[in-house]
Simulated assay, not measured.
Amino acid sequence: MRLWSLHPKYLDAQGLVALWREALLAQAVLHGETRGYRNHPQLDRFKNHTAPLVAISLYLKGIHAETVARGYAFDKSKIKPAQEVVALTVTTGQMQYEWEHLLAKLKVRNPALYRKWRVTEVPEAHPMFSVRAGDIESWERQ
């Protein structure tokens, strides 16, 4: 499971579809609708949020917005409703780690997209994240 802190615009089609599915799984885990993945470290930042169900819904909405921008027809009704707006933070170290991880994937899987994004020095975060200085997050498994 990889719940990217990066803006979903950087993902290739395969990565965006995988993110959508994994975020839906994360939503099911946080709602207690599945047994698997309950202790996955990628879920820690959502679990530790004061409103984890709202946070995962907003995360999914950010992914869905990218799919709409690309002309995909992902089912928005799969996102559980969220009545409030919350934010998460992510560290600069985590963003850099994820950026290098994504570029390595794209270099193999989608060389054209890799060439497009490799010149980006400071990638944008997913819309619900604010970036703060810091090392790689404690929940990241390197």
Rank of each mutant, 00 (worst) to 15 (best):
S57L: 10
F74Q: 01
P52V: 04
T67S: 14
N48A: 14
Y59R: 11
P41R: 03
T50L: 12
V54K: 14
L43R: 03
Y72G: 10
I56R: 00
V68Q: 14
K47F: 11
Y37G: 04
H40G: 00
P52N: 05
L53C: 09
D75K: 06
H49W: 13
K47T: 12
H64M: 09
L53D: 07
R38S: 04
P52E: 05
G71W: 01
D44G: 02
L43Y: 01
K47I: 14
L60M: 06
V54R: 02
N48Q: 15
F46T: 05
K61W: 12
G62D: 01
A69E: 15
D44V: 11
I56S: 04
H64G: 05
K76Y: 11
D75N: 06
V54E: 06
N39F: 12
R70D: 00
A73R: 14
T67G: 15
L43S: 03
L60A: 07
A65W: 11
Y59C: 06
S57F: 09
R45E: 00
H49V: 13
D75H: 07
I63T: 04
R45K: 07
G71T: 09
A69Q: 15
V54H: 08
E66T: 10
K61N: 11
F46L: 05
L53I: 15
A51E: 15
R70Q: 05
L43G: 05
I63G: 00
A65G: 15
G62K: 09
R70L: 03
H40I: 01
G62A: 10
Y37L: 13
T67F: 08
P52H: 00
G62N: 08
P41Y: 01
L53S: 08
A73K: 14
Y72A: 06
R70P: 03
H49G: 00
F74K: 00
F46W: 00
Y37E: 05
L58H: 03
P52M: 09
H40K: 02
K78M: 15
Y59E: 02
E66Y: 07
P41I: 02
A55C: 02
H64L: 14
H40Y: 10
L53A: 11
H64P: 03
R38L: 06
R38V: 01
